[in-house]
Amino acid sequence: MEPDWIWGLAGGLLIGMGGAVLLWGNGRIMGASGILGGLIDGSGRSEWRERLAFLAGTFLMPLPLYPLFAEVDTHISQSAVVLVVAGLLVGIGTRVANGCTSGHGVCGISRLSLRGIMATVFYLLAGGLTVLLFRHIWEVI
């Protein structure tokens, strides 16, 4: 198995190409939380079809790839409490900030948006601090 970073770089290029297709095709910013959130809270109801098409592509595409890679494990937490709390925080946080790693991170940084860059700084800080506290100090994740 090749080192992780090669797969990371290759996957990253695909992610960026996905963003370029949505930008050049539909004039839209590829943000996972915005596309999904607009369906959930109803703010993007009028474009439900293209939002659903995007989500379907994201959900379906890994399925044929999955059998090609031996030993794919997501190592997800086995604590429902941790996952529910984390899921609520991610859901609320990305909708309050109006973006996540794809929208603010990939699409924002690449156009040198100050908001995208600052959002990325904030969520990296909070993420790093959370792992430090919950893994090394309280040892619960």
Partner: peptide
């Protein structure tokens, strides 16, 4: 929002 998101991201290792 980004701070809340980051905390959840760190807890579970998943973003949207």
């Amino acid at each position: 929002g980004s701070l809340l998101f980051g905390a959840g991201w760190g807890l579970a290792g998943l973003c949207p």
